[in-house]
Every structure is written in structure tokens, then in C-alpha cells.
Design a binder for these strands. Structure first.
Length: 423
RNA sequence: GGAGGAAUGGCAGAGUGGUCGAUUGCGGCAGUCUUGAAAACUGUUGAGGGUAACACCUCCGGGGGUUCGAAUCCCUCUUCCUCCGCCA
């Protein structure tokens, strides 16, 4: 949610920036400003009424104590009248505030200056490429074939016990999965991120805090009996740890990392591109989250990008980095870099990480603040990224590391797997 | 799941109908003293709205109610503690 203050101060600049998303926000912005004005007018009138009522109450107390019952009685009637007025104003205020809130929820974050206008992922900008795309042996297989051949992942078993998109990892496949989680967590903690284990179900307030609610409710699995949601990413519980918190400046930056399974309904996706590990309803991910002072947040974003690069370099996977265009940018993000690993056998790029700066957009909903140099509470900036998402990394390793005899294990993972090849 | 008790400012902990946004202690910040520090002493120290700045309004776990007036009384929900039951 955009801070109202920002909208008041530079609505037109915001509208121009939002054009890059292909959205004409002017009607929404002017509606927000109108509702804000209305809300403030009502608030002022309500405050005045309440101030008068408070004054009367004190007077009545004094009159009673000095035995002037009759005068008090007259004031009580006046007070009752004020109460009626206050109630009416209160209702109107509630309506205006709610309408304002709903309007603000519809406004996405402002794209950063470096974000290019664009319609879709086709307009994303490749800003970095690394690694060589390996020449695969004769008869190279896509990862779902390899997974079957070496009995690493059983997709059918997952269908049996749960449904499509819930694979069962077996033997060396399961071990490789666990190795990746441990390796990623070790990389992240070595870079100063504090490791956390967090709940995998969250309440409604947390869903609103990070912006999954109200608009993306259909993408989350729900437990209505208890009013809970299965997390679509560890970002939700981790970032919400700091909901309604005012941090001291000395506590910044906050750097967290957490492994979690992620649950996504992926309503509406289908087709050839969802085969194997490409798109799942449950997958594993190691997330990194940072909270920064506004002036540091873009330096922090670059640091996160460098960190993720380091992990992919160590795994020796061919990858590229995209700067998302306005049309592909997430609702809550101001600037996002996507990392994609090349799937040799499928001959396509697979997204394995998305690193974003949300500036104050999430913090505004979360009421996540810090005390600035003047000791005044200010909204902090939040950032997060995957470091990394497991399934497509696994797919990339299986496909890129296959040779005539089987699959090699990336060197850095061998201490974690305990074996150096499959097959 | 059953029975009791509790929820107040960063923390501890007063406050049972009116002048209480809230005594006090600790912690934090500033000052006095000191070569410096500590100790001692003095002052200051919640959040949001609102204002040019004041004024003013709201908030004592959440929601609702009684009353001219609620931290204080009533209802309800949530959470925590104690006891019992069940259990990885």
C-alpha cells in the first residue's frame, strides 16, 4: 500500500511512473485524494464534537460535586445531543475511511526509475548473463525423464496421495534436495543472514501484511476452519515477524533467511510448460529477507543480487538476470531482478529467484518502522529474494550435469550429498 | 477438551467510575559534577490523527455495551499462566 503522504505530495509524478505498468492510475489517485480530504473533514468535525462533549462531562462532574444537580441535568441533555451528532459523524467517517482503504489497496507500487515500460515478460531486460551452456551428450533427457530413470522423483505417487504438482522425492533425489537446502542456508548465514524456522501456516493479518490479501486470496491454500492460510513463500511469515514493530536504527539492517515449503494453487496455469518440476503446488525454497533504511535499500538490493549470483556461480549453472519491465513487475514491488537458469534439455530459461525491493509499500501495511536520526518513527524499506527456489535448480542440475553415464553432482554439493554422481 | 486466574507505556508494576495518556521503579536520552568514566543529582522519554506551530481528538489485548463520563462496570472473542484430560 502506497503511503498516503506520498500520494498527497506527488500524485502526478506517481501517475507518470505508473504508466510504465500500463496502468492509468489517475482516476484511482484522484479518488484517493478526494476520500482523504473527506475523511479529514469528517475527522475534524468529529474531534470538535468530542472535545465539546469531553468538556461538558468534566463540567457535569464538577457540578455534581458542588451539589448543583439541576444545572448538571441540563448539561446532560446537551451531552446526549452531542453524542447523537458524534455517532452520525463516526459512521460517515468509517464509511469514508473504508472507501479510502479499498482505493489504496488497488494501487500497485511505483516502479523504480530504472524500470522500463513494457507489456509482458517479453519486454524484460537481460542485464547479465553467465556460464556456458553445456554441450549435452547424444540422447540427453529432460529432467522428468532423468528423475524417472534414476528413481529420484515420483510424480505419480504424489498424484496418488495428494494430487498433481505434489512430487515425492526418493533416495538420492531426496538427499540432493536436502543437500541444496543445507547448502543454501549455509551460504546465506555466511553472508550474515540469521537463520529462522517459521510457521508454515499464517493468519489473515499476516496475509494482508505482505500483500497476498486481499487480491491474491485465490492463489493460497486455505484452512477456513481455523482462518489460516498455507504460506506461498517464507516471505509471508518472516516479514510479518516485524509487523507493528518500531526498530531502533541500530537494529538495521535486519537480515533473515528461512527455508520453507511453499504452497501455491497456481489456479489457471496449465499446458506443456508445467511438466516435471517446472511448476508445482508444493515446492521448497530458501528465502532471504532484509529490512533497511530507505537510503540503503537499493545498495541492499544490489548486494542481494550479488549474493544470489555467487550461489549460482558456485553451482556452475548457466544463468541470466532480468530486470523486470513495468508490465511484468509484481504488484508490491518497485524493482525486481529475476534469475533464470538455462534448462538445456528443454531449451528454455527457468526462473529460480526473484529479488525485489518493495521500498515502503509492504512496510506501510505492516506498520514496520524504524527511528530515524531525529528519533522519529519512519517506514522502513523491505526487500526479499529467493536464495534459492529448489525445484528448478534441481531440474537445472539434472539436465546440465548429465553425461553419458549418468549425472554428476556439483562439486560444492558433494560434502552435503555424500555422493558425487547419480547412475 | 474441562476448571480457575490474568492481559496497562521498551521492561517491571500501581491504578475499581470523573482533574488518568495514566503514580513509581528500571532502561533510554540530555544536563550538572568529573581530566574522562562510574556514582549521585536534575530534567526528559509511547503511538496515531490533526496544526504553520499550538489547541484538540483517539488508543490501557480485539470487538460490542452501560453511563453525562470507563483502564476501572457488563457481554464476547483472542492470547498467556495454573490445575486436570489427551498426545508427537
Amino acid at each position: 500500500m502506497l503511503p498516503l503522504q506520498t500520494i498527497r505530495e506527488r500524485a502526478e509524478a506517481l501517475a507518470i511512473a505508473l504508466d510504465k505498468r500500463g496502468l492509468d492510475a489517475r482516476p484511482l489517485l484522484s479518488r484517493a485524494l478526494g476520500l482523504d480530504q473527506e475523511r479529514r473533514n469528517l475527522q475534524t468535525r468529529l474531534d470538535q464534537t468530542l472535545a465539546e462533549a469531553n468538556r461538558l462531562s468534566k463540567e457535569i462532574g464538577v457540578l455534581f460535586k458542588s451539589g448543583k444537580g439541576e444545572e448538571a441535568q441540563a448539561l446532560r441533555e446537551e451531552s446526549a445531543r452531542l453524542k447523537e451528532v458524534a455517532k452520525e459523524l463516526q459512521d460517515q467517517l468509517g464509511t469514508a475511511a473504508e472507501a479510502l482503504q479499498e482505493t489504496l489497496y488497488l494501487l500497485p507500487n511505483i516502479p523504480h526509475a530504472s524500470v522500463r515500460p513494457g507489456q509482458s515478460e517479453a519486454d524484460n531486460e537481460v542485464v547479465f548473463e553467465s556460464g556456458e551452456i553445456p554441450k549435452l551428450p547424444e540422447g540427453a533427457q529432460p529432467h522428468w525423464e532423468l528423475a524417472k530413470q534414476y528413481d529420484l522423483i515420483d510424480f505419480e505417487l504424489g498424484v496418488k496421495i495428494t494430487g498433481a504438482g505434489f512430487p515425492v522425492y526418493k533416495g538420492k533425489g531426496a538427499r540432493l534436495q536436502r543437500a541444496l537446502i543445507s547448502y543454501f542456508l549455509d551460504c546465506n548465514t555466511a553472508a550474515g543472514y540469521q537463520e529462522l524456522q517459521v510457521p508454515h501456516l499464517v493468519n489473515e493479518a499476516s496475509g494482508y501484511g505482505t500483500g497476498q490479501l486481499p487480491d491474491k486470496e485465490g492463489q493460497m491454500y486455505q484452512v477456513p476452519e481455523d482462518g489460516l492460510y498455507l504460506i506461498p513463500t517464507a516471505e509471508v511469515p518472516v516479514t510479518n515477524l516485524l509487523r507493528d514493530v518500531i526498530l531502533d536504527r541500530s537494529e538495521l539492517p535486519v537480515k533473515y533467511t528461512a527455508y520453507s515449503p511453499c504452497f501455491r494453487r497456481e489456479a489457471g496455469s496449465y499446458g506443456a510448460h508445467v511438466r516435471g518440476l517446472n511448476r508445482l503446488h508444493q515446492f521448497d525454497k530458501v528465502e532471504i529477507v532484509r529490512v533497511e533504511e530507505p537510503e540503503n535499500s537499493y545498495a541492499a538490493l544490489e548486494a542481494m543480487v550479488e549474493h544470489v549470483k555467487g550461489i549460482l556461480d558456485a553451482l556452475r549453472l548457466p544463468y541470466r538476470i532480468l530486470r523486470l519491465c513495468g508490465g511484468d513487475l509484481g504488484f508490491t514491488s518497485a524493482l525486481t531482478y529475476d534469475f533464470e537458469v538455462y534448462s538445456t534439455a528443454q531449451e528454455r530459461w527457468l526462473e529460480v529467484s526473484s529479488v525485489s525491493n518493495f521500498e515502503a509499500f509492504q512496510a506501510n501495511r505492516l506498520k514496520l518502522r524504524y527511528r530515524d536520526a531525529g528519533n522519529k518513527p519512519q517506514l522502513a524499506h523491505t526487500l526479499n529474494g529467493s536464495a534459492l527456489a529448489l525445484p528448478r535448480i534441481l531440474a537445472g542440475i539434472l539436465e546440465n550435469y548429465q553425461d553419458a553415464e549418468g549425472i554428476r553432482i556439483p562439486e560444492v554439493l558433494v560434502p552435503y550429498t555424500g555422493f558425487d554422481r547419480i547412475g
